[in-house]
C-alpha cells in the first residue's frame, strides 16, 4: 500500500475517479470503487496489487438521438405521459442506450403508470413482460436495489428494458401485477432473493426458499456459504473464500 499515496499523477485515495488512473474505465456512472486485488483484504501485500484503485462504472445516460426505433419509442412514451399530465422528466430518470439495447430508468412512484402506458398505447404496445430481475449494487448508496423489467412488443417486434431503483433502507417498488399478471411469481422470486417489497402484490410470499428462511440469499451481503474441502491433500476453500480478481 506504500505507493498508493505516491506523488506523481492523481492520488487514487483522494480522487478515484480521475481519468488518468490506470483503473479508470471510460465514461459512465460510478457504482463502486474497487481497492486491491485477489480479494485479499488482510495480511501483508507483497504483490503491490493491494494498492490498486479502480472505479467500477456502468454505462451512463445517453443523449439523443438514440438511433433506430429507440427515438420513436422514447417520443411516443414521452408524448403519452404528457397527455396524462405527467411530465416525462419526472417519470423517466434517464435513458440509456448500450449494446443495442434501450433502457429507461423510471422513478418508482410512476412505474405503474409508465408500464400501463407502454402496454396500452397502440404505438408502443409492449404486451409481453418477461418478468422482473433484480440486481443488488451494494455500494451504490441510496440506490442499492434495482428491479429490471424486459418488455417485449410482439406487435412491433421490439424489446425495451425498464429499470427501477430503491434504497436498501426503503426497499419498496410498486407491483406490476395489475398491469402484467405474469409478474406474480417473478416478483415473489425477487422479493424472496433480494427483499424488494412489491407494494400492491396480491400475495407477496417467498417462493423458492422455505417460508421461515432468514435473509434474502441473492443480496450481495448474503454469503454464498459452502465449506472447505480436501482434495489430494490440499484444503480447497469454500467458493466465496477463494481468490477473486473482480
Amino acid at each position: 500500500m506504500s505507493d498508493a499515496n505516491g506523488t506523481n499523477g492523481a492520488d487514487p485515495e483522494q480522487d478515484p475517479g480521475a481519468s488518468n488512473l490506470p483503473g479508470q474505465r471510460g465514461e459512465g456512472e460510478e457504482i463502486r470503487v474497487q481497492r486491491g486485488m485477489f480479494g485479499a483484504n488482510n495480511g501483508g501485500d507483497t504483490s503491490g496489487y493491494g494498492g490498486l484503485v479502480r472505479s467500477v462504472r456502468l454505462p451512463g445516460a445517453t443523449n439523443r438521438p438514440y438511433g433506430g426505433w429507440f427515438d420513436e419509442v422514447a417520443d411516443e412514451l414521452e408524448g403519452a405521459l404528457e397527455e396524462q399530465g405527467l411530465l416525462p422528466d419526472n417519470a423517466i430518470e434517464k435513458t440509456i442506450v448500450d449494446r443495442g439495447e434501450l433502457t429507461f430508468h423510471i422513478e418508482r412512484e410512476h412505474l405503474l403508470r409508465v408500464a400501463r402506458t407502454l402496454r396500452d398505447d397502440p404505438a408502443l404496445r409492449f404486451e409481453l413482460c418477461t418478468g422482473v430481475s433484480a440486481v443488488h449494487y451494494l455500494h451504490d448508496k441510496g440506490r442499492e436495489l434495482h428491479a429490471v423489467y424486459h418488455l417485449r412488443s410482439i406487435t412491433h417486434n421490439r424489446l425495451i428494458r425498464l429499470e427501477v431503483s430503491a434504497p436498501d433502507s426503503d426497499p419498496h417498488i410498486p407491483s406490476l401485477v395489475p398491469v402484467y399478471p405474469t409478474n406474480d411469481w417473478h416478483e415473489r422470486e425477487t422479493y424472496d432473493f433480494f427483499g424488494i417489497v412489491f407494494d400492491g402484490h396480491p400475495a407477496l410470499t417467498r417462493i423458492m426458499m422455505p417460508d421461515d428462511w432468514q435473509g434474502h440469499p441473492q443480496r450481495k451481503d448474503y454469503p454464498l456459504g459452502g465449506i472447505a474441502v480436501e482434495y489430494k491433500g490440499a484444503q480447497i476453500p469454500a467458493p466465496d473464500q477463494r481468490r477473486s480478481y473482480s
Binding site: 459512465g28 456502468l58 433502457t103 424486459h150 428494458r161 480478481y245 473482480s246
Partner: peptide, 26 residues
C-alpha cells in the same frame, strides 16, 4: 461493465438471460 439481455426460443418458450457485469472476471 454493463448489462445485456439475450433470449432464445427454447422448446418451452422464451428463455431469457439478463447478465450484468461490473467489469470483473465473474
Amino acid at each position: 461493465p454493463g448489462q445485456a439481455y439475450a433470449a432464445v426460443e427454447s422448446p418451452k418458450g422464451e428463455l431469457g438471460v439478463h447478465a450484468v457485469s461490473d467489469g470483473g472476471t465473474r
